[in-house]
Amino acid sequence: MDDHEFKLPRIPLAQALAALPLETPDRSAWPALAARLGKRRRVPRWPMALAAGLLALAFLPRSWYFDPAQTHPSQADASSTAIGAGESRAQLAALMSESARLERLVSVASDNGASSGSAAALSLALEDKLMAVDAELEAGPDSATQLSLWQERVELMRNIAAVETSRHYLAAEGGNLDVALVSAY
């Protein structure tokens, strides 16, 4: 170290470390992450403990699965009721939270590979509806429409959860959802 360097102001280690430039990864991790996220959404997976808790949902009427608006009249009516902006925001937040909870439920489970033709078709039909709702939400609708779409999204997620959970539980018990659906009607 030469003499003139002693005269220059010194830099605290913490400041010098914080000033180090950010490093860039050699390759983006996003493509692999996006693929895994996509797979998780397309193939809902459920732990058996959750499946057991929701067994009864397999025996709800067929209309419950296909017409979410009929499932919870109180919620369906909410969008047609005049509500204040604050209440609307609170409802929206609650719906988003519920939607997130259900999404999380899907993402943490593991796939046991159980499936059947009609059960898979039922899941796909519901997921197609979900994608359509998401597309409408991404378009940035007005607040009233947004509320209605989020209600629909939550109902669809509940339905998907019910179908998938029941399917896996019944598979573990040696049955399948096809038989359960037929028996219920």
Binding site: M1, E5, F6, L8, P9, R10, I11, P12, L13, A16, L17, A19, L20, P21
Partner: peptide, 16 residues
């Protein structure tokens, strides 16, 4: 625990 670095030692390459 305290270390005051001369400017040359605070160079990103050297510190890294």
């Amino acid at each position: 625990t305290d270390l005051m670095l001369p400017p040359r030692a605070a160079d990103a390459a050297i510190l890294g």
